[in-house]
């Protein structure tokens, strides 16, 4: 099912690229952020209840053509227990996104999202198929723009015994495009909430703030 969806997305993107009369443009984003993870899924068989935090670095590349965007992103960091304990986990996130702009201020996107918490012994892996909606609100035209993006998982899967429940989240921030400069700066706050299925078996929330530099894609 997921394979079929992925193929469909790629076909849609390829068709859009083929139809696009303008020359596609590339945009790259580099992120540096800090993440807080609050996991309360020990009862469900997860790695364990923990409060973790740590820096994360990431990047994303986007191909933009005729109002469509195909993007591929990856971020990674090492989280430590908030209480200075010895618990450590690597956080790895990756996603593929196909987006379209039906309106100048609205972007709709879909795509798979993978998040993994890796320890020496076990890897907790979440896979979502997300539907996202992003609204851009210019503060100063072509220079300063705020945005709010919300998403919800169309389907979710986790390698926990209990399985994945509802997964949703949001991000809001501001993008500054200095005049006569080829890059933009973005400050954002993100909040994800992933519930584990079962009888009150817990959840996992992820908070992040990030500062990003975006090159190209104007």
């Amino acid at each position: 099912m997921k394979t079929i969806g992925l193929i469909g997305i790629l076909v849609l993107a390829a068709t859009a690229v083929a139809r696009s009369q303008g020359r596609p443009t590339l945009a790259f984003r580099g992120d540096a952020g800090f993440v807080w993870v609050r996991s309360d899924s020990a009862a469900a068989g997860a790695v364990g209840a923990a409060r973790l935090r740590g820096p994360v670095l990431g990047g994303e590349g986007r191909l933009v053509f005729s109002g469509f965007t195909v993007g591929l992103g990856l971020s990674s960091g090492t989280l430590q227990a908030a209480d200075q304990g010895t618990v450590k986990r690597d956080l790895i996130e990756g996603r593929l996104v196909v987006a379209a702009r039906p309106l100048p201020w609205l972007e709709m996107s879909v795509g798979p999202f993978v998040r993994a918490y890796v320890t020496d012994s076990v890897t907790e892996r979440w896979v979502f198929w997300q539907a996202r909606a992003r609204v851009d609100a210019p503060i100063v035209t072509a220079s300063l723009t705020s945005y709010v993006e919300l998403w919800r998982a169309l389907s979710s899967q986790v390698n926990l015994v209990a399985g994945a429940g509802r997964v949703q989240g949001g991000e809001a921030g501001v993008v500054y495009r200095p005049p006569q400069r080829p890059f933009s700066l973005r400050l954002a706050y993100r909040m994800d909430d992933a519930a584990v299925a079962g009888n009150g078996s817990g959840s996992q929330t992820l908070e992040a703030i990030s500062l990003a530099i975006i090159v190209g894609g104007r």
Binding site: R38, L187, Y189, M191, E207, I209
Partner: peptide, 14 residues
């Protein structure tokens, strides 16, 4: 998006 969950104060800065 995460009703009833704790959140850090980072959001206030952003």
């Amino acid at each position: 998006m995460a009703r009833g969950k704790e959140a850090t104060g980072a959001r206030f800065a952003v």
